[in-house]
Amino acid sequence: MDNTTDMAEQHVILGLFDPKTSLSPVLDQLRSQGIPDALMEVLSPLPLETPLLNKPGGIPLHRITIMGGVVGIGVGIFFAAGTAWLYPLVTGGKPIVSIPVVGIISYETMMLVAIVVTFLAMAVKIGFKQQSGIRQDPRIDEGAVGLSIQVGDDTAKAESVSRLLQEAGASEVEIRTIADHV
């Protein structure tokens, strides 16, 4: 969407399908019409098993978790070993830096940072990396599966896409025009 001008019009088509309808054929047809997967979105009230669209996922979440865990271990070592060294005070004849303690604290901070970082990364992925113009339709909450397609400012294309959705068995098709702020 880099080539769109500042306040370009954007048509968004939403087709509602019965969950029993297979969406694969219609998605294939849309692809053959030159609509990339990036501009399509399948909306459902519960997770669907098969991935219908092929979209770049970004950094896998588990890798972020592992990185967070490593950072967390560092934080734990700083607290349990580092702060003890910063101001060494003898207590009970025990070592200033004791390895079991470092282990326990690092374990907890590893988990803490790993979980928090995973959550934040997930929030970024869910909350910020979404297409503009997707509207929550109450009928999707009630058990329909939605297919949302962005077609830019090409009105003819919008109509052909909406025809295609109807032919594929959509119970309802809506075209909305929004101002694209990108």
């Binding site: 909306l43 995973t118 999707i140």
Partner: peptide, 22 residues
Amino acid sequence: GWHGSQAQWYTLETAIRIITPL
């Protein structure tokens, strides 16, 4: 900004799957 897209479901389920054992 949840709207139930496949990517969102995938991300959410992955996050749950990662965090549960932790």
